[in-house]
């Protein structure tokens, strides 16, 4: 048995991350290498929009959270080649803070991921905020897909699976999926131990 090093403890992202992690979105003079768009004009597939809010245990919208998405392309493959600049083709990676839309919502522009090995299409979500001592992991599944075949999805307690489903909505003249995150309460989002 090899001796292992102790892992560095996690700490909160705090309230003031924006001028480093999402500077352009917030209007700070530091360029961003990641933003709310996971594709560029070379990605041919139909655009989808992922929107939602993050709620605390009292039902208040959290306006200082940071949401990151990481997803496969339309064939179900994750990008392996390095990202050389912001919106460098299909990156599959996005990052947005909840502090710039007046209603505290986040919104991403992407394409629907494909799936491989019989899993259901999904997007990995990483969530950070003041008041959270850890980065939290969850997933977005889609309301118009068959999700029960997915190994991870089907292993979630049946009563909580719907917390991971983004609901399809064509209301704004575009393909939008709505995905809210609840830190606590009856609809508390399922988070993974990674």
């Amino acid at each position: 048995m090899m001796e292992t090093l102790e892992t560095t403890p996690s700490q909160t992202v705090g309230p003031f991350f924006a001028y480093s992690l999402s500077a352009e979105q917030y209007g700070y003079p530091f360029d961003s290498i990641v933003n709310d768009v996971l594709v560029d004009e070379r990605s041919p597939d139909e655009r989808i929009y992922i929107t939602g809010k993050v709620f605390d245990g009292a039902g208040a919208v959290i306006t200082d959270a940071l949401v990151e998405l990481w997803q496969a392309d339309e064939t179900g493959r994750y990008r392996k080649i390095p990202i050389d600049r912001k919106n460098d083709g299909f990156t599959g990676f996005g990052r947005v803070g909840t502090g710039t839309n007046p209603d505290g919502s986040f919104s991403f522009t992407t394409i629907k991921p494909g799936s491989q090995s019989g899993g259901a299409p999904h997007i990995n979500v990483m969530l950070l905020m003041r008041g959270s001592l850890h980065l939290l992991h969850t997933r977005i599944y889609f309301s118009d897909e068959i999700n029960d075949k997915d190994v991870l999805f089907s292993s979630i307690n049946a009563g909580r699976r719907n917390t991971l489903i983004a609901t399809l909505n064509y209301g704004n003249g575009r393909t939008e999926y709505h995905f809210d995150i609840h830190m606590q309460g009856d609809r508390e989002t399922v988070f993974f131990d990674i």
Binding site: T12, I33, D56, G57, A58, A60, I62, W70, Y78, R79, K80, I81, P82, I83, D84, T91, G92, F93, N124, M129, R130, G131, S132, L133, L136, V151, L152, I156, M183, Q184, E188, T189, V190, F191, F192, D193, I194
Partner: peptide, 27 residues
């Protein structure tokens, strides 16, 4: 701030293949 912003339910244990998922590489 952790009082209203921390999960109240235990995190769900997941299989190793999910922990091995890649993340993007930046140039």
């Amino acid at each position: 701030s952790t009082i209203l912003r921390s999960p109240t339910k235990p995190l769900m244990l997941v299989k190793d293949f999910i922990k091995d998922l890649s993340l993007p590489v930046f140039g």
